[in-house]
Amino acid sequence: MSALSDLSMPSSNLSEPVSDVLLRIEELSLHYGKNQPPVLQIGNLAIDRGQTVGISGPSGSGKSSLLYLISGLLKPSHGKIIWNGTDITTLGEGETDRWRRKSIGFVFQDFHLIDEVTPLDNVLIPASFIGWRINDATRKRAHELLDQVGVPLARKSTSDLSRGEQQRVAIARALLFDPPVILADEPTASLDDAASKTATETLFSLAGSNRTIITVSHDQDVIDRCGRVLRFDKGALIDDSANIKEKAELA
């Protein structure tokens, strides 16, 4: 099976809009024990296609848990997570894996690249999940993505890249299957200011009508770039607002 032929989804395809609402969360709660208070509790929440959403809040407020829940890595205790009409909490593990591979691109704080392979091979790693051989189209796309994020193809060793370049390779890796959603978990937290600015530029340059970016961040520059900001505290959504700058622009 070729790497890109796996992109058709049996249960949900976020690239084919059912409505403007891409993600709908209904009566969601997450508990880590029967008698424990909820780690996260959200009544109803909808995110539209193409939005850039920043999630902020103090440590332990449930930001990362929300990211893991909406990516299908965590199952909620209660509630529904409906992506483009499909409740992913009802999918089996294999279906969730396939759905995530096609629909979600993950960017992590510590990049999690494999130092022992080249930047190009790092970008191609997700292709190895679905096929023995990597076809020319996938390889060409990996080349284009590295070019797009500004990492020279001549760089043979991943460990020789700067941290900013490593994060941009991680962003290219997240984009290999052209997912409609990018989930980023503190994407600039381990970068210096200059690298952070470049990585933020790269990340938000991907946004558009067909791509939604949801990022957890403490970095105000990142939050400022988001069109919508969700603020959490003690597992509860305490504020859901358009960005102040965006509000100002709208005004």
Partner: peptide
């Protein structure tokens, strides 16, 4: 284990 967790987050099935 974190490397493999990342691979799972990127869409790798458990069998991988």
């Amino acid at each position: 284990r974190k490397q493999f967790a990342v691979l799972r987050a990127l869409g790798a099935p458990r069998s991988y």
